[in-house]
Structures are given as structure tokens and as C-alpha cells.
Design a protein around this nucleic acid. Structure first.
Length: 370
DNA sequence: TCTGGGGTCCTAGGACCC
DNA sequence: TCTGGGGTCCTAGGACCC
């Protein structure tokens, strides 16, 4: 008798209102109330909403929204400061559960604090998803939603339909039925700007973009991006879950000042501070930087960046901050500064496979685009 | 827009070279 | 100087994601 091989599935695990949920866990009296987390917790300061609880979202508060605006929409909310360390601890617990809860061999690809792909060969993916939800809740008190797909893109897109605390499956079979008439900007990798550009070219809906000729679109938006957008609209994506460790391409630190900087010696001092932090991060990675970049955001909100190769690869604060200070002199000294940022780049190893392509831009690939 | 911080990747244009 | 035709590298900016 032929041995039946279980089907390969991708599960996308996404914690529900993660940051707000972690805050409510340690302050149970906040349960059921509108909670908004971001910045220092003072909604009159320059910052944005990191996460709003479902109760706060009912008032129109969303992630990424300026805190001042959130405070206007929902003045009775509890405003809390963002506490990275607490979220990292909670995230590590969740990822540890995902690596161990099942007897099946699983691949785990971490996408961020509150997201991961699971790769598994099973004929009962819904059952596996529910086991994962129960295991995460039992260990951490946090609920997650899970999207199941035949590749990473479909799994990722499925999750939103399962929220909160549910499971949803999206495959080649129901992709167009579920997604076809939606606007392209809900797709992973297509944002507001690109959706507008595509709409101007006649592709507003997912099914319209999916029917486009990849090479034609490539001529209009670039040879890489054209075929990629069409592939995304068709629901195509990588089928393997990559559990290789994440290898950063760069390290950066930036600060938005509560009052714009106008005093150049202060600007230099802030750049040096940031450069020293970046150098410490580089050193902690045990790697050598080859290039340093400086980002300057002027009043009101226009941003410029400049960068310089280092004379020799280094992890030392001396040359990194010297390069950042050289760069700062090339900018306009007469304009108030809202933000400063320093970045160090590592060499790109063209041999190495992207260690974790789902960080940053959408990590697609896999299926050929025909 | 009142618009954070930490990342990744792609593209266009200029510089440079033969 | 009335100024070729690539190829490649570097840089800044833009778009996107969590």
C-alpha cells in the first residue's frame, strides 16, 4: 500500500492586541476598558499609538495614529507608556510555546514580537491551530488568531479573518472568492501609495491585479516589482517556513525630540550619543560595520539621509561616531531639527540566502509567476 | 497630520570606466 | 567640442512592514 504523505501547511500565528493584552495581564483592572499604549504614555507628547485595545479601537483609535489625535478621539482611555522589555519577555514565552507545544515536527519563523509562521506536515491543520491557541493561552494568558494557508502569503492574509481568537483558512481554492473584490492595499506588500499607483493604471481590485500581465506591469512599475505585485494578487508565495536565525543587515537608533533642536552644538552632541549606542549594538552583535548613515528630519517633517563608507570595517565607537559627525556637517545648519538617527550597515553576503526574508519587506518567492 | 522606532528592499540617476 | 555607448558601482529617496 502506498504511504500517504501528509500535506504541508503554513500557519500564521498573530497575538490579539498583543501590547495592550500584555498590559491588561499585569493590570487586570484594565480588562474591558479602552487602553492605549505608546510613547511615554503622555498623550500630549510627540509619539504614536503602539497598540489600542479593542475597546479603544471602537472610538476610531488605531496603531500608528498620533497620540494627540488618539487622546482627542478617546479622552477617557487609559494611556500607558510603551514597555519594550515586558513585550520582549512575553514574546519569548509565546515563541517558546510554539516551538514545543506539538508532538509534530514544526518549523518556526519569527516575524516580530507578536507573529510567527509555523510549518507543519499534517492532514488536520485546524486541529493543530486550535492546539496552538490553547497552548499559548494556557502558558501566557494571551489569545492569538491563526491563519492557515498553502503558502506564507495566504496564511498571513487569512489571519485577519480569524480575529479575534479564531482560525481561518485561505488556499488556492478560496483565494479569489475571499479576496477577489477587495482593494489591493489589503495585500501584504502593497501599501497605500502602491495601491493608488496601481489603481491609476487600472488595477484597483485584487482580481484585476491578478489578471494583469506581469511583464507589462513590470514595464510600468519596474521589472522586479511588477511581477511581484501580480504574484501577490494571485496569492502566490513561499511555501517553506524558514527557521534559520535572523541575521541583521543594519543597526540603527533614532530619536524624535519633544522640542525641535536649533542649537548646532546640541545637534552634534545628540548625534554622538546615538552613534555610541549604535556602536554598542554593533559590538554586541559581534560584527563589523562598513558604512554609517545619518538621518535628519527637519521641521515640519521632511527627511534627508546621507551615508559614508568607513575606511575599514569596525565595531568601535570612535570611527562610527567620527563618521556620523562628518555627515552632520553636510546638512543645513539653519533649520530646526525634529529627529536625528544614526545607522550602521553590515556587509551584504550575496552567497547567503536572506536569513529571514519575512522581516522588513514582504518575504515572497517560491512559486514561479507565470 | 498633531505624524515613533527599528528594520528591509527596490529604483533612479550620477559617477566612473573602457 | 558640435560631445558614443554601454556596463557597473554608489548614493539618496521611497515604500513597506511590525
Amino acid at each position: 500500500m502506498a504511504r500517504v504523505i501528509a500535506q504541508q501547511w503554513v500557519l500564521h500565528v498573530d497575538l490579539d492586541q498583543f501590547i495592550a493584552a500584555v498590559e491588561v495581564l499585569r493590570r487586570p483592572e484594565l480588562a474591558g476598558l479602552p487602553v492605549i499604549v505608546g510613547g511615554s504614555g503622555d498623550p500630549t507628547q510627540r509619539s504614536v499609538v503602539a497598540t489600542a485595545s479593542y475597546e479603544a479601537r471602537a472610538f476610531g483609535v488605531q496603531s500608528g495614529m498620533p497620540m494627540r489625535l488618539a487622546a482627542r478621539k478617546c479622552p477617557e482611555a487609559m494611556f500607558l507608556p510603551s514597555d519594550r522589555e515586558a513585550y520582549e519577555v512575553a514574546s519569548d514565552q509565546v515563541m517558546a510555546v510554539l516551538r514545543t507545544f506539538s508532538k509534530l515536527p514544526l518549523r518556526v519563523e519569527v516575524l516580530g514580537w507578536d507573529e510567527a509562521f509555523l510549518g507543519a506536515a499534517t492532514d488536520t491543520p485546524e486541529q493543530l491551530a486550535k492546539e496552538a491557541q490553547r497552548a499559548v493561552f494556557a502558558a501566557t494568558g494571551l489569545w492569538c488568531s491563526i491563519g492557515i494557508g498553502d503558502n506564507v502569503l495566504r496564511a498571513k492574509m487569512a489571519t485577519d479573518f480569524g480575529k479575534p481568537a479564531g482560525v481561518f483558512m485561505l488556499t488556492a481554492t478560496n483565494w479569489f472568492q475571499v479576496m477577489g473584490d477587495r482593494s489591493t492595499d489589503i495585500l501584504w506588500g502593497i501599501g497605500r501609495k502602491t495601491a493608488k499607483r496601481l489603481a491609476d493604471l487600472g488595477f484597483s481590485r485584487v482580481d484585476e491585479l491578478a489578471a494583469a500581465d506581469p511583464l507589462d506591469l513590470g514595464r510600468q512599475v519596474g521589472p522586479t516589482m511588477g511581477p511581484r505585485y501580480v504574484g501577490i494578487a494571485r496569492g502566490q508565495g513561499r511555501t517553506e517556513v524558514l527557521d534559520a536565525p535572523y541575521v541583521p543587515r543594519s543597526r540603527s537608533r533614532e530619536t524624535t525630540f519633544q522640542q525641535d533642536l536649533v542649537d548646532w552644538p546640541v545637534v552634534r552632541a545628540e548625534v554622538e550619543k546615538l552613534a555610541n549606542q549604535v556602536a554598542a549594538d554593533v559590538e554586541a552583535d559581534g560584527r563589523l560595520a562598513i558604512r554609517v548613515g545619518l538621518k535628519v528630519r527637519f521641521k515640519p517633517f521632511d527627511t534627508a539621509t546621507r551615508s559614508l563608507p568607513l575606511a575599514a570595517p569596525t565595531g568601535d565607537a570612535g570611527p562610527i561616531s567620527a563618521a556620523a559627525l562628518d555627515l552632520v556637517e553636510t546638512f543645513d545648519h539653519d533649520r530646526p531639527i525634529r529627529l536625528l538617527g544614526v545607522r550602521a550597515d553590515f556587509p551584504v553576503d550575496r552567497q547567503a540566502q536572506p536569513a529571514n526574508p519575512s522581516r522588513g519587506r514582504a518575504g515572497l518567492g517560491g512559486d514561479a509567476i507565470s
